[in-house]
Simulated assay, not measured.
Amino acid sequence: MFDLDGTLVETAPEIADAVNDTLRRFELPEVSQQQVNDWIGHGTRSLLIEALAFSVKTDVASVRDSGSLPLIAAEFDRNYQRRCGTRSHLYPEVRETLTALRELGVKLALVTNKEGRYTATVLEVHGLEPLLDSVLSGDTLETKKPDPAGVQRCLAQWKVRPDRALFVGDSSIDVATARNAGVAVWALPYGYNMGQPIEACHPDRVIANISALLADPASPC
């Protein structure tokens, strides 16, 4: 099971583009790429709220309760759908590794907090959907990561024991999700862990890139 943003696909540049497109539309100060990187993880709506709170110098709760949020969110939705796929790219060895795992008969799932409409666009642009057996987005279930429901859904779907499963992600959210589901977790160091080193989350292993899933005999795969 894999996270998406920061794990399989580098998406932060186009997310920042969409956020700043939206802020400019409402004549608000823009945010930096690093800020967007640090806000990624809880879904795009949460990220937009963080950006608005910073831009108008208020707190997240005030933005969330604002009557203008639906209008701004609708503008962001248009901008991000337009930007999806324009400046994102696969991380090294992603396509090759997923293809090889499928050929070995390994079940592959995506468990992301990104909303389904954006997830579908990113997967289509980068040709990943045919390589995945299941896709669980941030609005597929009632809860998001770090709630383990998405992981548990995958295990139940394929009748796989937790000790025969592996979650691969890039953030403390992913590590917590795997721990909550009782599965092993490997982490990549190049993603969006809210500006913190991934080692601080204590995953079972930190791997240089996703091809380690094929090279290491200790993998549950």
Rank of each mutant, 00 (worst) to 15 (best):
Q33W: 00
T58D: 13
E27V: 11
D17F: 14
V36L: 04
F76N: 13
Q35H: 10
S46L: 11
R78T: 15
V94Y: 00
I72H: 07
I72L: 02
R82K: 10
G67Y: 00
N20M: 09
V63P: 14
N20A: 13
V60K: 15
K57T: 01
E75S: 15
L28M: 14
N37A: 06
T86Q: 03
I49V: 03
A73P: 05
Y80M: 10
L47P: 14
V94M: 04
E30I: 03
A53S: 15
T99N: 12
L69W: 08
G105N: 08
G67C: 03
D17V: 14
D21Y: 00
V36Q: 00
L48Y: 08
L104P: 09
S46C: 11
S88Q: 06
A100F: 02
R83H: 00
E93W: 10
T44I: 07
E103L: 03
T44D: 12
L90T: 07
R95H: 09
T44S: 13
L28V: 09
H42S: 12
N37G: 04
R24F: 10
N79L: 03
D17T: 14
A74L: 06
I72F: 08
A51F: 02
P92D: 01
G105D: 01
L69D: 04
L28G: 10
L101D: 11
S68N: 10
E27W: 10
I40C: 11
G43M: 02
R82Y: 14
E96N: 13
G67E: 02
V63R: 14
F26L: 02
V31S: 13
D65L: 15
L71G: 14
Q81C: 12
A61I: 04
E30G: 01
N79A: 01
T44V: 07
L52F: 07
D21E: 01
V36C: 05
S62Q: 12
N79C: 00
H89Q: 15
V56W: 09
L23G: 05
L52M: 06
R102V: 08
V56F: 08
P70Y: 05
E30V: 02
S66M: 04
L71V: 12
C84F: 13
R82M: 12
R78D: 15
A100W: 03
V60Y: 15
